[in-house]
Design a protein around this nucleic acid. Sequence first.
DNA 1: AAAAATATGTTGCATTTACAACAATATTAT
DNA 2: ATAATATTGTTGTAAATGCAACATATTTTT
Lengths: 160, 160
Amino acid sequence: MSMKTKVDCNKVHYTDSIYYELEQTSRLMKKITVQLFTKLDIDLTMDEYAALDTVSVNAGICQRDLAKFILKDRANTGRILDSLEQKGFITRFIDTKNNRLVKKMGITENGLKELNMIDSKIERYLKSLTRKIDPADVDRVQETLKSFRIELEKVVEINI
Amino acid sequence: MSMKTKVDCNKVHYTDSIYYELEQTSRLMKKITVQLFTKLDIDLTMDEYAALDTVSVNAGICQRDLAKFILKDRANTGRILDSLEQKGFITRFIDTKNNRLVKKMGITENGLKELNMIDSKIERYLKSLTRKIDPADVDRVQETLKSFRIELEKVVEINI
DNA sequence: AAAAATATGTTGCATTTACAACAATATTAT
DNA sequence: ATAATATTGTTGTAAATGCAACATATTTTT
């Protein structure tokens, strides 16, 4: 075997890295979830669902803070909330935070109903995705991902 | 503590699931990589870079097969390749696969140079992201993610 | 042999997304 | 006090993305 070939074989490829594996797995997962939402006739987008869930555990949050949670910019966060409000799943009200006028929000009765309905609809489908994987591994991955994400948050420049 | 409160506290939220954790971590990672590419004046997009790397390890692959690898549709795969070809990093040629006319491709000398240049530029930045995490954990996560992704591939409907 | 279905790549379009500019208000600096 | 800066939300726009439709060629069905 020539030296060149040997070097080539040992080359570290980005597409073999954990960063790419993460992106690919996430893209697949997103595709599957979108297909699931379509199949189950859920009339929220995935992003609206995630936003609604985030609002449900952070009552009275303002738009910018929500944007930081869901990792979208203020513009698109506003648009998602427009849709959720128009569908009657959240209410928005003007309030102050640090003496600034902000738009805060809360989940409505209907929103909570919708959230629970979606949860119950998708639960068993999502659970089945990891049936071949040791539950302990799943937990460990989630934990490590969380530590990783917290490290990433320290490095990324967020301009929201 | 009332029963209702107890139930509420025990509610399983989508935003606490491994599926959402995966998406959030991946989104952050993507943001960081885009910022890195900008900061280092790399004149490929992340997607072009990943495609170029994939082509480099799959010489003579056709467009549709590449699309399946990079999880993009045929249209956008074609557009990414247009850009890479225009920049001189790949060559495309007509060939046959199963008696069908297909566009195959290979990486050029310049493409290989560019790929190695980018690899060397970003390597230490990416490595530093996991410096706080036990390398064994990183390996384990990558392994588990891969098993997970393979399970997902069995479930997702790919129409490429 | 003719028709229907499949495979591959491209084009057009509608949706999503990110980013910059703006409007309104409040704080800080000079 | 006035000017500069910062916070929050909205609007506009350009780029990315996915999907459907198309063009071409081949295979399969009838």
